[in-house]
Computed example of a mutant assay.
Amino acid sequence: MRAVTVTPDSDDPLEVRELPEPDPGPGEMLVRGLALGVCGTDREVVSGGHGALPEGREWLVAGHESLGRVSRAPEGSGFVGGDLVVGVVRRPDPVPCGACARGEFDMCRNGRFTERGIKGADGYGAQAWVIEPEYAVKLDAGLKRVGVLMEPTSVVAKAWEQIERVGGRSWFDPQRVLVTGAGPIGLLAALLGKQRGLDVHVLDRHAEGPKPAMVRDLGAEYHTEDIERVMSDLAPDVVVEATGAARPVFEAMAGTSPYGIVCLTGVSPSGRRITVDAGSLNRDIVLENDAVVGSVNANLRHYRQAAEALAAADEQWLERIITRRVPLDRAVEAFDRQSGDIKPVIALDPSAE
């Protein structure tokens, strides 16, 4: 079989190479890879800025945004041949910490978890992969074109769960949400906001391209003005911050309605400095009972929530998030940012297209 592999921080870090067909161990199932999504985390792994290799190896199979079809499943696993599935990214640490022991491995406290395609374990960027049934999630059969969006949707599902849990500390009846950033996470956050019946607004810097129409077709409002003005005009009850850019992060914290919640989902690069009136920001957060929460990764519960959200969404709208489908033999191209990109996807099985 062929697989996309990464040798981080080398002269030619990406390679499509021939590897032996995987042999499922006891209790594992064999899955035929259909598609692999590529995101900023994957690019960080390629550059050596994030993640870790499997022990004793100088490379790993790339990718954590999976989609596959079950080829062979153990009896009694709940899966049968032909099922459309996605693999969960993270595995709990072997110790385990309290969170991992309770199935909340997305909140691991000692950092000894592994992540397929990212930290210490091969990813899903192969024409075949094996997985434990308890870490696979079944998708509606009609999602074969867009099911590769499951992993980023799980991240967003967790973010919304976190928002609702924090809001539940008291009476909570949000009406208006601002999503900053219209990449895959931002668009999917807007989708789940609309599914909750909220007045959704999306702020992005791109006035051209597919994003404005996608947001409008979702029934949300698209903004390109300065964030300070947008926050002042909207005073949103909830902000889902999906850019990781320093200024939107701090403007969001300072501009919500009283008892507002800011959920940070974008990872900021280090080394960039801005001037912030920390005293004023602290005063606003305290006096208005505001909350700021970071959210990353997902556990099985969030994957199942994501599967439900995708099944309830307009499939044609979801497919517009996937702006490029790259054949496996040109997989390296999917890791290069291109103008107009939202989500590039590698087609692991051309016959499935």
Rank of each mutant, 00 (worst) to 15 (best):
M1E: 10
A3H: 02
P8C: 14
D11R: 13
D12Q: 15
E15M: 12
R17G: 10
E18F: 05
P22L: 04
P24K: 00
P26G: 12
G27E: 13
L30P: 05
R32T: 01
G37S: 11
G40V: 04
T41Q: 04
E44W: 08
V46Y: 02
S47D: 15
G48A: 11
G49D: 14
H50A: 10
A52V: 03
R57T: 11
E58F: 10
W59V: 08
S66Y: 09
S77D: 08
L84R: 03
V85S: 02
V86E: 04
V89S: 08
R90W: 04
P96H: 08
C108I: 06
R109A: 12
F113M: 03
G123P: 02
Y124A: 00
G147K: 07
E151C: 04
T153P: 03
T153L: 10
V155Q: 01
A159W: 06
E161S: 13
Q162A: 12
E164D: 15
R176Y: 06
R176D: 02
V177E: 01
P184I: 09
G186D: 06
A190Y: 01
L191H: 01
L203P: 08
L203I: 08
H206F: 14
A207N: 12
M214C: 09
L218V: 01
H223N: 03
I227A: 03
D233Y: 06
T243C: 04
V249Q: 00
G255Y: 02
S257K: 12
C263T: 08
S270T: 13
R272E: 15
T275Q: 13
D277Y: 11
A278S: 11
I285V: 15
S295L: 00
N299E: 07
Y303H: 09
L310N: 00
D314V: 08
I321F: 01
I322G: 08
L328R: 02
D329Y: 11
V332W: 05
A334L: 02
F335S: 07
S339H: 15
S339M: 13
K343M: 10
V345N: 00
A347M: 14
A352E: 10
